[in-house]
């Protein structure tokens, strides 16, 4: 019995030395909006679809943190775009690029430009926070080029709009809630905030507004 307790304690001590990992998961609702009459292509780069942040411990009192947001990002933006636009087509390779050539009005490419998080250990404030900065590019289908090796590249000279938006999520400390659960919840709140920001500002982005009015020339000349 005592030996078993000793082994358990040793395992717990070893576990405490490892990195803490959060794979962000959540349920995301479809937006309640009048769908825009557009067929939108979406390209998720590998960096976006597998996005993660690794934070190395600064001292012996801290542990490494690995926050994986990629799967949740793709799930969330798929849901949001699906509720915002009449039709959404995922473009990931040569076949998907050419299969809907005649239907797609424009292609959007989201990037995670920055992600920062804080836990109470960092700030002494009883709040877990996640802050994200996104960059979105809206390009015509002709700006996407596929290569023999299957890679897709974008010609930046042809873009219709390029803008950034920020998102913030926080969750207070709660009884019987682990750091990992709280960081996950803060990330889900931040994703929802990003979606709310995107959904309410998309048509007001100057390049997007100009393109939707069919006035792409005025944007190009800026």
């Amino acid at each position: 019995m005592i030996r078993a307790l000793g082994v358990a304690t040793f395992i717990l001590l070893l576990a405490a030395c490892g990195a803490r990992e959060v794979v962000v998961k959540g349920n995301f609702p479809q937006p309640l909006m009048d769908r825009l009459p557009l067929t939108l292509g979406v390209v998720y780069s590998d960096a976006f679809a597998q996005h993660e942040i690794f934070d190395e411990a600064a001292g012996r009192a801290e542990t490494d943190w690995l926050v994986k947001t990629g799967d949740a990002q793709v799930e969330f933006w798929d849901t949001l775009f699906g509720g915002m636009f009449e039709e959404v087509v995922r473009i990931s390779d040569h076949d998907s690029l050419h299969a809907h050539e005649s239907e797609i009005d424009a292609v959007i490419i989201p990037y995670v430009a920055d992600l920062q998080y804080t836990i109470p250990l960092h700030t002494n404030v009883k709040v877990y926070e996640i802050w994200m900065k996104y960059r979105f590019r809206l390009v015509p289908l002709s700006a996407i080029h596929d290569h023999d090796n299957g890679d897709l590249t974008i010609d930046p000279a042809e873009q219709l709009a390029d803008w950034t938006l920020t998102a913030y999520g926080k969750t207070p400390t709660a009884f019987l809630q682990s750091d990992e659960e709280a960081v996950n919840l803060a990330a889900v709140v931040a994703l929802r905030d990003a979606g709310a920001n995107f959904a309410t500002s998309f048509t007001r982005v100057p390049g997007v507004a100009a393109w939707m009015e069919g006035d792409t020339e005025s944007f190009d000349s800026e």
């Binding site: 609702p29 479809q30 309640l32 905030d193 709310a196 920001n197 959904a199």
Partner: peptide, 12 residues
């Protein structure tokens, strides 16, 4: 809040 997303988020 889920039924009305994104109109009752802290931002909106």
């Amino acid at each position: 809040i889920n039924m009305m997303y994104p109109w009752f988020e802290p931002r909106t």
